[in-house]
Computed example of a mutant assay.
Amino acid sequence: MTTHMLTADDAAFKALFPLKPFRIRHNLAGDPRLTLPAILELVKALPRDRIEYNSGKAAVSQDPDSTPLVDLDPEDVITQIETAGAWMVLKKVEHHPTYKALLEEALLSVAAAQGFESVKAAKFTDIQGFMFVSSPNSTTPFHLDSEDNFFVQIHGDKQFAIYDNTDRSIASEDQIEHAITKHRNLKFDDAFAPRGTVNELRPGEGVFVPYIWPHWVKTKDAYSISLAITWKTPEVKRRNDLYVANSMLRDRGFPQKAPGVSPGFDKVKIAAVQTLTLLAAPLRKSEGLRKVIRSIVLGKNANYYYRDKAKPKQVGM
């Protein structure tokens, strides 16, 4: 890659992309769209179901049901980020035109470096952005994601540890299904450590994270701003649809075989999910209906990020 927005060693990119992680560089660290004042305005503009936050004092192997919370509103997290002890992610920022343009420009630079004329030609579809704002010394627990990701560090320093899951000994197919459809967190075992690579990231640096490769992240002594520039290829979208179908059927008492064991039935399930997705698309414009759809498809805990903030106990008046 030789273009200006996202760059990497050409040999590493050709040898590793999109199946293995590698380090990247970028010129986004000074971008005014990625500063705290701009992010505060983004928080004000986003619907509540696209904002998730909790305490940064989580464990690497954090049980999502006992994740510590913070007694702050989303805007307060941003304005007090240096002392809030908080971790926040702003989801699907591509719905804001300013950030949609940023994401597309970044991925177009990668596509052009590969000889493609457009992001679509490079199979960068379903482009999404996730903005992370974290207090000093915060932890993002061990988890995996349902997309490919160019993760770029904007402010502060981070440790970003990525673990090889190609043989499924770190996360089984059942665990992957649960992470994609229920909650992203995975249990971390110290035996995984030799298979991980810890990347020290400073502003202007980043890393490519392949689809469903587990990772944990820790900030250092300054607050952190990071951006995940993500996409799904058609193959990844079909795989995710299959996980959703299997999860829905399993929740209703119908055991399912792992992806690839019954290719013909897999195709039927994928087609059904794709049809339902198209039918539900107009409804997803409403935050309330999105909440209902998530509950129906992914289960009763699908809207976990709506849980009430931790409130201090009231002392008698």
Rank of each mutant, 00 (worst) to 15 (best):
F116L: 01
A121V: 11
F151G: 06
L108C: 00
S146I: 08
A112Y: 06
G129T: 08
S172K: 04
A113E: 15
E105G: 15
I154W: 02
Q114Y: 04
N149Q: 03
K123M: 12
V133P: 01
A113R: 10
I127M: 13
S172P: 02
D145V: 00
A113Q: 13
I127Q: 09
Y163M: 03
E117P: 09
N137Q: 02
T166N: 12
E147T: 14
I154G: 03
Q128M: 14
E117S: 15
F150D: 12
D126I: 05
D164S: 03
A106V: 05
F142G: 01
H143E: 03
I170T: 04
S169P: 02
D167K: 08
E104T: 08
D157N: 11
Q114F: 03
K123N: 14
A121S: 14
P141A: 04
K123G: 09
D145F: 00
D145N: 01
A122M: 05
L107R: 04
L102G: 01
Y163I: 09
F142W: 03
L103E: 09
E173H: 13
S135Q: 06
L144I: 10
S146P: 08
Q159I: 12
F124A: 10
Q159P: 00
A113L: 07
V110P: 05
P141G: 05
I170V: 12
D126N: 11
E105P: 01
P136W: 11
F130D: 06
D167W: 04
Q128F: 09
E147V: 15
K120A: 14
T139Y: 04
F160D: 06
E117Y: 12
N149G: 08
F132W: 07
S138Y: 05
A113N: 12
S109G: 13
F124W: 05
S118E: 10
F124M: 11
F124E: 10
A161T: 15
R168Q: 14
A121K: 12
N149Y: 07
N137D: 08
D157G: 11
F116H: 11
S118L: 08
K158F: 07
V133K: 08
I127Y: 08
T166F: 04
Q114W: 07
E147A: 15
P141L: 02
T166V: 13
L103D: 00
T140D: 09
L107K: 02
M131L: 15
F150N: 07
F116D: 05
Q159H: 15
D126W: 03
I170L: 10
N165S: 00
T139H: 01
P141I: 00
G156Y: 08
E117A: 15
S138A: 11
S172A: 01
D174V: 06
T125N: 07
F130W: 07
G115L: 10
F151T: 13
G156C: 03
S138L: 03
Q153G: 11
I127R: 09
L107F: 03
H155V: 14
Q128N: 13
D126Q: 10
S118C: 08
A122D: 03
T166C: 09
Q114C: 11
F142L: 01
I154R: 01
I170C: 08
K123I: 05
H143V: 01
Q128T: 15
N137L: 02
P141M: 03
V152S: 04
S138F: 04
V152G: 02
T140Q: 06
D174R: 12
A122P: 09
L107C: 01
D167Y: 02
N137P: 04
N149A: 07
V152N: 07
A111M: 09
P136V: 14
Y163S: 06
E173W: 15
F132K: 02
E147F: 15
E105V: 04
